[in-house]
Design a protein around this nucleic acid. Sequence first.
RNA 1: GUGGGCGUAGCUCAGUCGGUUAGAGCGCCGGGUUGUGGUCCCGGAGGUCGCCGGUUCAAAUCCGGUCGUCCACCCCA
Length: 427
Amino acid sequence: MANSVFPRLPGFRDFPPEEFALRAHICEAWRRVAHRYGFLEYDGPPLEPIELYVQKSGDEIVNQLYSFTDKGDREVSLRPEMTPSLARILGARSRGMSKPIRWFSLPQLFRYERQQRGRLKEHFQWNVDVVGEAGLAADAEILAVAIDGLRELGLTSEDFVARVSDRGLVQILLEVLGVPEGAVAGTLAIADKLGRTPEAAVQEKLVTDVGFSDDLAKQVLAVFLAPSLEDLDAHVLSDSRVSERITSFREFVARLGTMGLGEYVEVDLKIVRGLAYYTGVVFELFDRKGELRAICGGGRYDRLLELVGGEPLPATGFGMGDVVLGELLADRGLVPTFQRELDYFVVVVSAQERPEALRIAQALRESGKSVAYSLRDQSLLKQMKVAGREGASVVLIIGPGELERGCFIARDMTSGEEREVVLSDLV
RNA sequence: GUGGGCGUAGCUCAGUCGGUUAGAGCGCCGGGUUGUGGUCCCGGAGGUCGCCGGUUCAAAUCCGGUCGUCCACCCCA
């Protein structure tokens, strides 16, 4: 690869059939689940005007845009995420649509950043969104889809967990503690580091970077680290805005329990999500062993459609990438082994049976069977080897004798059983 | 973007203190008496030792740079 005349761009993948099989396996599972929940598939352009991302997605995304100036002097970017495109598409037509809108997509997304395990310059992402429904039922439905997407691939509650939080609740909690409105975003950014940075360092950062007193930093930290909502400070819990928001958040969690997905859900206020536009429930799915990056992230973004000039519609959704998920499946032995499959392989003893072989092959193909044969004249032995290698379940053998009697031999490649048949026996 | 490990056939790797024509397994191609696969046996093709430069009588082996890759940091679709 490194010494190839035309090397691949770093961070991009080739998909020869053996690799493509895993991608197809994942994408097909995603589609099945999305359809099962009544979502409709859509897509948009892989290239968008850069402005679509600059204002709405936050600096984290903008710094990593795979962007350039096109020949028409337009500043463009390969799409780094799907939600802005969705918002734009809906902005143009949502007024005439019945709500809620339930759409999903499987876009290939791009970012310009040095690659690492689970992080390439390109990936395929399952995007599922409910638009036009502000209630927590929509958030629960969305998270259920994400969980089922993983279950469909054979993963269980032993393999992954959904950590859920509510940005609205966190915001209220911070306000009640006396965090100034302007400091909320910075606080969230620092809290996002909890889990991979020592608590003391995070507390220190809250003091130095955001300007909190030691006492406030400690209280803020306690909010994010609370093992459960019940463990929040009593005077915080007594605030009516807090208790109101907690009640509705609990209903969201309880709803997933009713759906039978309780064992997959854990409340964790440390989950804040990097993107700027989230406004309510947010969640991330992780492998239980904690060896990989987040498998999936999502949440509610009620202001985004408005920001891109559309009807002000509440929305909630998630994105799940194929790269980390592929690694998790590999770790758990859930990647199906690549198997060539063919219904029939037609073999001729000598060249004079070729025309009949072609007629049989075409007739079977017309009836929907997959059929192949050697494209060159080869010995019977050779043809049989090829048939085996290509995964034929039945080999049809025609020789001079069969040709004369108007029949051929069907050999079952699993049992080795052979019988004489005519075409009408097979179609 | 910063720091570190690695880079030998399609794949996984071996190559001892620098020393002649660089090896193995798997895979691939061919054959094992022109009507039968998967096992087995035999044979074959395939490598500018990532690339460029340096040290040396001599470099896959030492040094520098570069590209790629992996890991950590940054950050996180």
